[in-house]
């Protein structure tokens, strides 16, 4: 029990105290907004295919490490490709994946000594970029400033929260046994090439106690 408390405190302090370096979405009343129109509007602004260069800060236990992630996302085909480099342009790993599998196309030997890092990264990319629209059968709940959708997912359920004057997706959270397992928060949406892209993304994995802070650096397509 004591170990559990210490573990909980450790995760809480490590994750809970991490600063979010992006502006929160300005909330506006959404009480009179039709939830289905929120989803439809969000879907319309969602880019189907894009390639983006991000900086990614991996944060764990007050320690931080920076990488550059070049990500190619194809939402229509549910496929992605990603290459991660260090800031000097050295390729650390390269992987591709779809809904069912993640393939490591290249990884530095030094990285593989610490476990299957590319697969972990691939799973986080799926969490961030895929399944960002709730299903038509999702359970809706309206707050004064937010509209939330909840639907079963795997062993738990997924919750989507939309807010702001543009009614963007601001949070996507996964729960198991009513415990928050991980959450992706999206910040500072901007219209680029006719579609809406969050300029900042924060993924917090409460289960393992780490945070990824993603900043868009360049949008290629």
């Amino acid at each position: 029990m004591k170990r559990l408390i210490v573990l909980f405190l450790g995760v809480f302090l490590a994750v809970g105290c991490a600063r979010v370096p992006f502006q929160e979405t300005t909330l506006v009343p959404l009480e009179s907004v039709d939830p289905s129109s929120v989803v439809e509007s969000f879907k319309a602004g969602l880019p189907a295919n894009f390639q983006v260069l991000n900086s990614v800060v991996f944060e764990y236990n007050w320690r931080k490490f920076l990488g550059l992630g070049n990500v190619d996302v194809d939402r229509q085909e549910n496929r992605f490709r990603v290459v991660c480099l260090n800031p000097m342009g050295v390729k650390l790993f390269e992987l591709s994946g779809d809904r069912n599998a993640i393939v490591t196309d290249y990884a530095l030997d030094a990285l593989m000594k610490y476990g299957d890092l590319p697969t972990a990264v691939g799973n986080d990319i799926r969490r961030i970029y895929f399944d960002v629209v709730p299903s038509a059968s999702a359970q809706v709940s309206k707050g004064k400033y937010t509209i939330s959708f909840r639907q079963p997912d795997g062993a738990g359920y997924m919750e989507y929260v939309f807010a702001g004057k543009d009614r963007d997706l601001i949070e996507k959270s996964y729960y198991e046994d009513d415990d928050l397992v991980w959450r992706v928060s999206y910040y500072e949406y901007r219209e680029q090439n006719g579609k809406r892209y969050p300029q900042g993304i924060v993924l917090v994995n409460y289960q393992y106690g780490y945070q990824l802070t993603v900043r868009q650096k360049e949008l290629y397509s």
Binding site: N86, V90, A110, N205
Partner: peptide
Amino acid sequence: MIMYWRIGMRVVFSMILCVI
């Protein structure tokens, strides 16, 4: 994940080893 950080320092070395 612990591995995220542990690779951090390795990466500093790897960048030198790999490119230059």
